[in-house]
């Protein structure tokens, strides 16, 4: 009888152990799916739930606070997701909180992330939280594909550039030329000297500018001297007056030229006679020819007088005096250039 009782106890223990494991397992799974305890429901809406299923976790600021209870289509563009959230989270989730669908790792299950909102009232049962679009894996892959294409294009260009560099004889000659470093060194030295000169010039320029600022020198006076500025103003005034007089004179000359033009056009006045009258031109031409003839005759007469016995002595005396004067002038010049 005692043995039978022991057997019963053993069997009882065996069965109880098995049932305990079953109950614990079911409780843990149920607890994980928020079947026990105090919970409340929230709702959120998406255009695309990206494979979210009932039972997926809900996280608030990274903490697991509930699960997805129900997913239903409410219109052709909106899907409503019902979330079961632990009651203790109620005071922390504000009405301004937003939800988004994320992923538990790169290949993990989908999760709903509730991002804490700015201060506001705490949510109530069945509130609808605003949702925002999350990074979709398809979008990421699409972007990655674009990036890959860009990288491939860049790599291709780079390959072409490197190939051209490799095939460039001029560049390799340049790189293999051992004198280039010396030239570069010399250029650097010259550049340094040039910089020193520029620096010196800048210092000089600074002094000049300082002098100009102080009103020293012509430029300084020009820019800073108020008396000179007054003189300049006076000069400018005078130039303006002279300009005005010149303008008046030009106007008079213009008037005169116009009256002359009128006279020439109307055939009046001496200018018209001088420029336009052909008879006067003939008379002038004849007079000039008579003067030429008269002058030639006078030249002949004068030559004849030089050979006349009464006047011949006078002309010879004049020649001798001229010769003397020439000699004396030549002697004086030789004395000045002598040793």
């Amino acid at each position: 009888m005692a043995a039978k009782s022991t057997d019963h106890i053993k069997l009882g223990l065996f069965v109880m152990a098995g049932l305990a494991f079953l109950i614990v397992t079911l409780y843990l799974i149920g607890k994980d799916q928020d079947l026990f305890g105090n919970n409340f429901e929230l709702r959120t809406r998406y255009a695309n739930v990206q494979g979210l299923v009932v039972g997926n976790n809900v996280r608030y600021a990274g903490i697991e606070v509930g699960t997805v209870r129900k997913i239903e289509i409410i219109s052709d563009r909106e899907i409503e997701v019902c979330l079961v959230i632990h009651n203790k989270m109620k005071p922390f989730i504000k009405k301004t909180a937003t939800t988004s669908i994320g992923s538990d790792g790169l290949m993990g299950n989908k999760v709903i992330n509730i991002e804490p909102g700015i201060d506001g009232l705490a949510v109530a049962e069945n509130d609808i939280l605003p949702s925002r679009g999350a990074v979709n894996t398809d979008d990421m892959l699409r972007l990655l594909d674009h990036t890959n294409q860009d990288i491939a294009a860049i790599a291709s260009s780079l390959k072409s550039t490197v190939s051209r560099i490799n095939n460039s004889q001029g560049l390799w000659r340049l790189l293999e030329d051992s004198t280039i470093p010396m030239h570069i060194s010399g250029s650097a030295t010259q550049l340094q000297q040039a910089i020193l000169r520029v620096s010196s010039m800048a210092a000089d320029l600074q002094l000049i500018v300082a002098d100009v600022k102080a009103g020293k020198g012509s430029l300084g006076k020009l820019l800073r001297d108020t008396a000179m500025a007054g003189a300049w103003q006076h000069t400018i005034d005078q130039l303006e007056q002279a300009g005005a007089v010149a303008g008046q004179l030009a106007a008079r000359l213009d008037t005169t030229a116009q009256s002359l033009q009128v006279d020439i056009t109307n055939g009046k006045g001496p200018v018209h006679v001088l420029l336009k009258d052909s008879l006067t031109a003939i008379h002038l031409s004849n007079s000039l020819r008579n003067i030429d003839l008269g002058t030639a005759a006078f030249q002949q007469n004068m030559e004849a007088l030089k050979h006349h016995f009464l006047l011949r002595g006078y002309f010879r005396r004049q020649e001798r005096l001229q010769q003397k004067a020439a000699k004396s002038e030549h002697g004086g010049a030789a004395m000045r250039t002598g040793p």
């Binding site: 079953l22 397992t25 079911l26 843990l28 799974i29 149920g30 994980d32 799916q33 039972g55």
Partner: peptide
Amino acid sequence: VFDNLAFSDVLPAF
């Protein structure tokens, strides 16, 4: 283990 289990895993097997 239990986070990744569901009733649909345990009950049909049981």
